[in-house]
Computed example of a mutant assay.
Amino acid sequence: MYVAVKGGERAIDNAHAWLAEERRGDPSVAELSVAQIREQLRLAVNRVMAEGSLHDPDLAALAIKQARGDLIEAIFLIRAYRTTLPRFGHAQPVDTAEMACDRRVSATFKDVPGGQVLGPTFDYTHRLLDFKLMAEGGVPEAETAAPRDEPVPHVTSFLNREGLIQSEPEGDEVPPDLTRAPLELPADRALRLQALARGDEGFLLSLAYSTQRGYGNSHAFVGELRIGTVAVEMEIPELGLAVGIGEIGLTECETVNKFAGSRVEPPQFTRGYGLVFGQSERKALSMALVDRALRSKELGVEVSGSPAHDEEFVLSHCDNIQATGFLEHIKLPHYVDFQSEMELVRKMRAEIAACRAKEAAE
């Protein structure tokens, strides 16, 4: 129960003014523009778009600036704004096989059609501070390869040719929309993937790590990780056909896991899947590992009881906005609640003291 505090509105206004001052920082330092954040903090922008469920780099950059770099607060701002937007229609499913890849690697096959494309990645850096960046110089000259426009096949299609990997059913059923309806358990895979795509990167990373350390019953290989742009198409009823409305950047990850088989399925490989906005390799890979862990029951694999296998635990706790709201609400006034509990503790202490006094007298 909350109670009103006299003078609270004035205090809140002053807190907001102080927040704006702290956000601006030292006035003698040039203000950071939304364009600078969008172009130079692109990975942060990508995370805000992915977990905020809204693909708009400018708004994501604005949210990061407003939130003083607090990405979860920025995600909250984007989700809140998203609820105000009208929905005009639905895009067609994007075809990632037609992706123009900036980066495309496989840990399962050395030689793949289209080749291994390292792309822009931290994987091969030395993780040493580059003090030249403090000089705020220009971009070092380097040979930059253009994105590959020609489509490259998915690596798992090679396993499909021999029937070594479980086939994915292609249904016409429209999946539920997690942004418009509450999560219901048990959830089908389409709904689980939506929740994981919006889930907190750190939470999913920890769960994925737990499956690698033995709290899971599978060992994953990265069948393919690809980053690039795909065309977005929307069907126009008046025209009777789908037309392109733009392009978006995506990261897609497919993991390959050995499956010993069951009474109805032969030994084969199974998949984990991750797909997120922009370049977000860690999130896509974590999502794929957790997706595969959550598929254990439907695959007939013995579940060890680890957290990553527990659908209710994972899906009920992966959303950082829900978690933040419930966590941070305890900072708000709970004066009446606490007073009642304090009275209860006093009463309990008095009863115990009276009992001890009685025992001592006897």
Rank of each mutant, 00 (worst) to 15 (best):
V152D: 06
A181Q: 14
T251H: 04
I245W: 03
A142R: 05
L205Y: 12
G240S: 07
Q194T: 08
T270G: 01
I245N: 03
N160L: 15
I248T: 01
D188S: 03
T251M: 04
G249R: 15
G163A: 01
F203I: 09
T270S: 05
S206G: 12
R148C: 05
R180V: 12
A145Y: 11
T144D: 12
E184A: 08
I236E: 08
I165T: 10
N217L: 02
G228I: 09
E254V: 13
R189E: 06
Y215D: 14
A231Y: 03
L241G: 00
A146R: 15
E254T: 12
N217Q: 08
L205R: 12
R263H: 03
E265T: 13
L250M: 13
E173A: 11
L275C: 06
R226C: 07
R226E: 02
L275M: 09
V264W: 07
D188A: 03
L196M: 14
L164T: 10
F203K: 11
R180K: 15
L205Q: 14
E168M: 06
A208G: 13
S218M: 14
F269Q: 04
T179G: 00
Q194M: 10
L207R: 11
Q268G: 07
L250E: 03
L178P: 00
I227K: 10
P186Q: 03
Q166S: 08
A142W: 00
G272H: 08
T179M: 06
L183S: 06
L159G: 01
N257H: 10
Q166M: 14
Q166F: 09
F277K: 03
S157C: 05
D172S: 04
Y215W: 15
L196K: 10
G272R: 07
R161W: 10
L241P: 00
V174I: 04
G171H: 11
F259D: 01
A220I: 00
E184Y: 02
P147M: 09
M134P: 00
P186S: 03
G240A: 06
A197P: 00
P147R: 14
F203V: 11
E141F: 04
L196W: 11
A197R: 15
P147Q: 10
A146F: 13
G278Y: 07
G138Y: 05
P237T: 10
V152R: 15
